[in-house]
Each structure stands twice: as C-alpha cells, then as structure tokens.
Simulated scan of single mutants.
Amino acid sequence: MIDVKTAVNAAYEYIKSIQYMMGSSLGDLRLEDVELSDDKSFWLITLGFDIPKKAPKSQLKNLIPTSLASTPVLYEREYKL
C-alpha cells in the first residue's frame, strides 16, 4: 500500500487532469477527508471544490436595466471521494 501523502497527491493530480470533463474549472480545491478503508487496502480521499452555480432565471430581470442587473457569480461546493 502507498503512503497517505502519495495517495493525496495522486488524488489531486487526478481531479485536476479531468476537470475539463466536468464542464468548468475547479476553484478552491481542498483536501476534505482521508480515511483508511475497512480492509486497510485503500486510502479514501475526499476532495472539495467550488463550481459556478447557474443563477435561476427570473422574468423580473428583464425589467431592470442591464447596468443594474449584474448578478454576482454564485458557487456550489462539490465533493468527490
């Protein structure tokens, strides 16, 4: 079995290598949790990251001038094991 530091580094590199498949760049990539599997064969590594959240469409936005209607980008926290 590999040591935990090597496993965490491999998880980071893996998630970074597939972020293009997820449709957006990953912001604030962080290690969230590390556990050893019950049979002590694998490291279970949870990574968390922020992805842009689509703002709900509102009919009221059409009534506000575009200079005033700028909406801040919202993010959702996602987790991958």
Rank of each mutant, 00 (worst) to 15 (best):
E32D: 11
K61E: 07
P65K: 07
K16V: 12
E76H: 10
L26D: 15
E76V: 04
K80R: 15
K80I: 12
L47A: 06
Q59W: 15
V73I: 15
A55N: 12
S37N: 00
A55P: 04
G48F: 04
W43E: 11
Q19Y: 02
Y12F: 15
K54I: 01
K57L: 10
A11L: 05
N9W: 05
S70E: 13
K61Y: 04
S17E: 10
T66L: 12
K53Y: 08
V73H: 00
L63C: 07
I2S: 08
M1E: 14
V73C: 01
M21V: 00
A10L: 04
Y20Q: 12
S25F: 06
T66I: 03
V73K: 00
I18P: 04
L26I: 10
Y12R: 15
Y12Q: 11
V34P: 13
G23C: 02
A69E: 04
S70A: 09
Y20A: 15
I15F: 05
F42L: 12
P72D: 05
M21H: 04
W43Y: 15
F42T: 11
L29K: 00
L36M: 14
T6Q: 09
K53G: 01
Y14K: 10
P56V: 00
K80A: 10
M22R: 08
Y79K: 03
K61W: 06
K61V: 11
L47Y: 00
S67I: 12
Q59S: 14
A55R: 03
I18F: 03
R77D: 00
T66S: 14
L31F: 08
T71W: 01
S70C: 10
S67V: 08
K57W: 07
K57P: 11
T66H: 08
D50T: 03
L63V: 01
K57I: 02
R30M: 08
L31I: 02
P52Y: 01
I45H: 01
Y20T: 09
I64P: 02
L29I: 04
M22E: 09
T46E: 11
S41H: 04
I2Y: 01
L36I: 10
V73M: 09
Y79E: 08
L31V: 11
K80D: 11
I45W: 00
V4F: 06
A7L: 15
N9G: 02
L26P: 12
V34R: 05
V8W: 01
S17G: 09
S58E: 13
E35I: 06
V8E: 07
D39G: 09
Q19M: 08
L81I: 13
E13A: 09
V4W: 06
Y79P: 01
K80P: 03
